[in-house]
Write a protein that binds this DNA or RNA. Structure first.
Length: 596
RNA sequence: GGCCCGGUAGCUCAGUCGGUUAGAGCGCCUGCCUGUCACGCAGGAGGCCGAGGGUUCGAGUCCCUUCCGGGUCGCCA
């Protein structure tokens, strides 16, 4: 005897006349006194079941007690609906079940919200009762999509000869990169494991092991502040291959991403994806992850304004800064208030001001026009392809501030102009990243990607003379302004790796202490290798067209890294702390003791 | 760590210049109802205004502190 014979959404006209057994949740009850309709829901969909005293008196009276979210099992006959009573809103709208037997498997308290109205409910309530939130078809679709994407990727990589291999979750803390989550060791007092920020070093060791091609759907942990697209634990599609070039990896990944889009969404992507160098991306879009769904590129006008009377511009250029602008098409109608608003927004990126020129049919409107000759203004307009109706926005500062400010502005303007089309997918690769960036706070170079990234062969000689100029064999895959994945060809020689550590200020002793096992492995015949890691959560978020990765993770954490469902993190028993040789400063264990 | 937005009924929100008894929609409960599908009709219940302190004759409203949620910069691939 089976619990059920069909899923609710599976039943069609073909089953009319059959007796079926269904189980699911009461989505809604419509009680007409002498006739009761219930929408029965399971993962597959909704079907209307009908209780009538003419069919079964006992079931009918039991149905009067049903409430939303009760779990029931019904036995009944599939009937075609009478003419004119078709419900076009559900896939089973042309049939219904006449119930002969009703069994309440479990009652439900009144839930804080119903699955069919959850989209407007505050996210904290949804997270607290995540199991109710996940009853929503919309959320189930996201989880299903996630399943299908990982399944497609597993099949693809398997076909290409990659082996799925697990790497440790309890591992060694390392300097560089994000803050580690630590796990105290009971057996080694005062010592700690760290949760992996990524399987980076293990996958490199697998290459040294001769595995040749590895992948993993890997959970990663980073103890940093959160965003809509960042969780403290997240999932990477992580892969690595030996004897492979950058272009081979790029080709392979384009094929993989195309297959995922095709199989899960039926979208055919055009390959190869465009490639931009890091410098080009920064120059044209002000960011290393440009959204290519719209134009509005940054234009450098430094040379046009360096010798003008507008000191704000000329002095910045003279001091080695730059003046760049964007053309906000048809935005000349922006009010002072709107421009002030934009000015305030770019100030968050360090811009000290936002200069503007509104181009009209009969000339320009601009607080800075009086500083420029007519020739200068027309030269600026020409270079920025300005037409009447356009608004030119300028930021003058050091290059990093100009890029950040205008990079933000071009997206903001595109949003306001409705240029961002949600269901368009514009990929690009960004390549030729700098190997290092200078950390002003720590007064040293840090690895831009990570310290295991290989420099370009022709840049290796710059290690001693000008590390800031070195470029990396690194590449990022960008989709609609979101960094989807990043990887590199790695260092596989001990001498290069040691130079790398030295350049970022890691002493030989520290390198030995933290990464000795990797350096040692390089001594035993490490093959050239490289790989890439994709942010699976972001990938699904973009495919599902959601704004937050929380919507594609079954049990995500809040912005302050808490789980509202389990109330983690939480205090632990004093005994547990004692076993771990840990004393906390805030005396959490004392409070626990007092409660007992 | 900084900045911004929010927290009022189960849910979504309104609440004017500080004023007397804090409202709406949905939901919920009870009754009626044999073709609804956001069923309908009638009636009813439901509030620590996030918490603490202050100003005031009087605070949901003003001030301070704090907690929680979201966004963002820093941070983080």
């Amino acid at each position: 005897m089976k619990m059920r014979s069909h899923m609710c959404g599976q039943i069609t006209l073909a089953e009319v006349g059959q007796e079926v057994t269904l189980a699911g949740w009461v989505q809604r009850r419509r009680d007409h006194g002498g006739l009761i309709f219930v929408d029965l829901r399971d993962r597959s969909g909704i079907i209307q079941i009908v209780f009538s005293p003419d069919v079964n008196e006992e079931a009918f009276h039991l149905a009067e007690k049903l409430r939303n979210e009760y779990v029931v099992r019904v036995v009944g006959t599939v009937m075609q609906r009478p003419a004119g009573l078709f419900n076009p809103n559900i896939s089973t709208g042309d049939i219904e079940i006449y119930v002969e037997k009703l069994e309440v498997l479990n009652a439900s308290k009144l839930p804080p919200f119903f699955p069919d109205e959850a989209s407007g409910v505050d996210e904290s309530v949804r997270l607290r009762y995540r199991y109710l939130d996940l009853r929503r078809p919309e959320m189930q679709e996201n989880l299903k999509l996630r399943h299908e994407v990982t399944k497609t990727i597993r099949n693809f990589l398997d076909r290409k000869g990659f082996w799925e291999i697990e790497t440790p979750i309890l591992t060694k803390s390392s300097p560089e990169g994000a803050r580690d989550y630590l796990v105290p060791s009971r057996i080694y007092p005062g010592k700690f494991f760290a949760l992996p920020q990524s399987p980076q070093l293990f996958k490199q060791l697998l290459m040294v092991s001769g595995i040749d091609k590895y992948f993993q759907i890997a959970r990663c942990f980073r103890d940093e502040d959160l965003r809509a697209d960042r969780q403290p634990e997240f999932t990477q599609i992580d892969l690595e291959a030996s004897f492979i070039t950058r272009d081979e990896i790029i080709d392979l990944m384009e094929e993989m991403v195309s297959e995922v889009f095709d199989k899960t969404k039926g979208i055919k992507l055009l390959t190869p994806f465009p490639r931009l160098t890091y410098q080009e991306a920064m120059d044209r879009f002000g960011t290393d992850r440009p959204d290519l769904r719209f134009g509005i590129e940054l234009v450098d006008v430094s040379d046009l304004v360096v010798n003008t009377n507008f000191k704000v511009f000329s002095e910045v250029v003279a001091k080695g800064g730059q003046v760049k602008g964007i053309n906000a098409k048809d935005c000349a109608k922006f009010t002072r208030k709107e421009i002030d608003e934009l000015t305030k927004q770019v100030s968050e990126y360090g811009a000290k001001g936002l200069a503007w020129i509104a181009v009209n049919e009969d000339g320009v409107r601009s607080p800075i026009a009086k500083f420029f000759s007519e020739e200068t203004i027309s030269a600026i307009c020409e270079r920025m392809s300005a037409n009447p109706g356009d608004l030119l926005l300028f930021v003058a500062d050091k290059p990093s501030v100009v890029a950040a400010s205008l990079g933000y502005l071009r997206v903001e303007i595109a949003k306001r102009l409705g240029l961002i089309i949600p269901d368009r997918f514009k990929f690009c690769w960004v390549v030729d990243f700098p190997l290092f960036e200078y950390d002003e706070e720590e007064k040293r170079f840090v690895a831009m990607h990570h310290p295991f990234t290989s420099p370009m062969d022709e840049d290796i000689e710059l290690f001693d003379s000008d590390p800031g100029k070195m470029r990396a064999k690194a590449y990022d895959l960008i989709l609609n302004g979101v960094e989807l994945g990043g990887g590199s060809i790695r260092i596989h020689r001990r001498d290069i790796q040691e130079k790398m550590f030295k350049t970022i200020g890691i002493s030989a002793e520290e390198a030995q202490d933290k990464f000795g096992y990797l350096l040692e492995a390089f001594d035993f015949g490490a093959p050239p290798h490289g790989g890439i890691a994709f942010g699976l959560d972001r990938f699904i978020m973009l495919l599902a067209q959601r704004d937050s990765i929380r919507d594609v993770i079954a049990f995500p954490k809040t912005q302050s890294s808490a789980c509202l469902l389990t109330k983690a993190p939480s205090e632990v028993e004093p005994k547990q702390l004692k076993e771990l040789h840990i004393k906390t400063e805030i005396g959490a264990n004392n409070r626990l003791q007092e409660k007992k």
